[in-house]
Computed example of a mutant assay.
Amino acid sequence: MKLEDELKMQQFTDNFQKAYLNILFTGNWLEARMQKSLKVFNITTSQYNVLRILRGQKGQPMSAFAIQERMLHRTSNVTRILEKLVEKGLVTRESKSSNRRMIDVMLTAKGAELLKASDEMANESHLQFARTISEAEALQMSDWLDTIRNEHL
C-alpha cells in the first residue's frame, strides 16, 4: 500500500518529506511484523537483538555497555532488557570483582536454543524482503540509508 493511503495524506510538502516519513513508517512497520513473529518466543525485538549480539560473541562475555553500543535501538534501557533476559534464563549476568559496576553478560544454553528455534522465523522475514526487491535495489537502498546517516554525523 502506498504511504499516502497508509497515512491518509493526499499531499506532502515535498518529496523529501514523503521519503523521510516513508523511512520512519516502514521501519516501524518492519519492527511491528518482527515483534508479532517473536510473540511466540515471549521476547521483544530489543531482547532478540541482545540475544543475537551475544550469540555473535561465541561464548565470550560482553559488557552491558558494549551490548548497548551494538544495539539497533541504542536508546533502549539495556539494564532493564538484561534483567528480563536473566529472569527468563536466557542470559547470565555477573559483576566483575575489580569493578562492581562492570557487568559481564553471556548467553545461556536456553538462550542459544531459543535463538536456534527463532532462526527459521528470522530467515523467513529475510526471504520475504528478498522476494520484494532485487539484490541491486537492496544494495542501493543500503547505500542511500548509509549516506543519510553519514550526512547527519
Rank of each mutant, 00 (worst) to 15 (best):
L54P: 00
T132L: 15
P61L: 04
V86N: 02
D119G: 01
K116F: 02
R52L: 10
E87M: 10
L38D: 03
E137M: 13
F25Q: 08
K39A: 08
K39G: 00
Q128S: 14
S63N: 03
Q128L: 15
S134L: 09
R33M: 08
G27T: 04
Q10A: 04
A136Y: 06
L85R: 03
I67Q: 04
L38I: 01
I148N: 01
Y20P: 12
R74I: 06
G89C: 08
G27I: 03
L115F: 01
L139C: 11
R149G: 03
L90K: 06
S97M: 14
N99T: 11
F41G: 04
L127Y: 10
A122S: 02
H73D: 15
T13L: 09
K58S: 09
R93Q: 15
R93F: 11
F12R: 00
Q128W: 15
I133M: 14
M62L: 13
S46M: 08
S118G: 04
V105S: 06
D14W: 00
F129E: 14
K116W: 00
S46V: 11
T147Q: 12
H126G: 02
A66Q: 05
K36E: 12
R100W: 04
K88L: 15
L72W: 10
R131V: 05
F65R: 06
R149V: 07
S76Q: 13
S134P: 10
Q10K: 01
D143Q: 13
K18S: 07
E83W: 01
R55G: 07
N77I: 01
Q68C: 12
E113N: 08
A19L: 14
E120W: 07
S142C: 10
S98W: 14
N49I: 11
L30G: 03
G27H: 06
R70L: 13
Q11E: 07
L24T: 05
L24N: 06
M106L: 11
L24A: 09
R74N: 14
A64N: 09
W29R: 12
N28F: 08
R93G: 11
A136R: 08
A32T: 06
L3I: 13
T147C: 12
D14A: 02
Q17G: 07
E137L: 13
A122C: 03
R55Q: 13
T44F: 02
E124D: 14
M102H: 15
L127C: 11
D5V: 08
A138I: 02
Q11F: 00
L7H: 05
N99R: 13
L51M: 12
A136C: 13
K18I: 03
M71E: 07
Q128N: 15
I148T: 05
L51R: 02
V91I: 13
E83K: 11
E120C: 00
T147I: 01
G111F: 05
L30R: 04
W29M: 10
H73A: 15
A112I: 00
A138F: 09
D146W: 01
G27V: 02
N150C: 04
K96W: 15
R33F: 03
E135C: 11
Q57C: 05
T13A: 06
